[in-house]
Every structure is written in C-alpha cells, then in structure tokens.
C-alpha cells in the first residue's frame, strides 16, 4: 500500500510545475492550462486524504472543484476570444489597458 505522503509530495510537485507555468509562459491559453494543472494537483490531495480518512467528503469537494474549474475555463476562454478580437494577440503583457 502506498503511504499518504507519496501522494502529497506528488501533488506538491505538480502544483509547483503549474506555478512555474503561470510565471514563465507568455501565452494566456497556456497560463489557463497551468491553472487547470494546479487545480488537479489539489484534487489529488483531496482524494488522497479522503482515502486516508475513510470519508467521502473529500470526493464531494473534488466534484465541486471540477464544476468550478469547468465554469472558470468557459468564462476564461470567452474572455480570451473577445480580447483576441480587439488586440490580435495572446500575450498577457500586451493586455495592460482596461479599455481601448
């Protein structure tokens, strides 16, 4: 049986990779994908604790995280499409003005 710590450390590594992606990438779609990666790392933590404590609550919370992630991806991609129409770019450093 794999100890709980292994899952937690794996989850921390994936989360850190997601943080790196948010910092170093210049494509806003990839930044959104890195956020999905971080959400998944947290989900893995929830599932590991749910298994370790023998409680279903963690799995229910993962269900809600998935719902919120779906809503976030939909709205985020809609915003990206409408910004791209105005600016013809996906570089977040060029999105500095609120209205243009």
């Amino acid at each position: 049986m794999v100890p709980l710590n292994y899952y937690l450390v794996l989850s921390a590594i994936i989360f850190a990779i997601g943080v790196t992606g948010v910092i170093i990438r210049r494509n806003i779609i990839v930044i959104l994908m890195s956020i999905e990666l971080m959400l998944n790392a947290v989900n893995l933590t929830f599932i590991a604790f749910s298994r370790s404590l023998g409680s279903m609550d963690g799995q229910v919370i993962v269900f809600f995280v998935m719902t919120v992630a779906a809503a976030e991806a939909v709205v985020g991609l809609a915003i990206i499409i409408s910004v791209f129409r105005h600016r013809q770019t996906l570089d977040p450093r060029e999105m500095q003005l609120l209205k243009w």
Binding site: M1, P3, L4, N5, L8, V9, A12, I13, F15, A16, I17, V19, T20, I23, R51, S52, L53, G54
Partner: peptide, 25 residues
C-alpha cells in the same frame, strides 16, 4: 519560485503521515 515552493512544502508533507491515521480499510 517553484523550487522555493517545493522546499517549503515537501519536508512538511513528507512528515505529515505521523499526524494522520493509517490507510483506512
């Protein structure tokens, strides 16, 4: 930033098994 985050998280997480009950059947 990622390496620093890992330096904070990993020692804590690899230690935390002592605080928790083992794998529940």
């Amino acid at each position: 930033a990622a390496v620093l985050l890992l330096f904070v998280l990993v020692p804590f997480l690899s230690d935390s098994g002592r605080l928790l009950p083992g794998q529940a059947p």
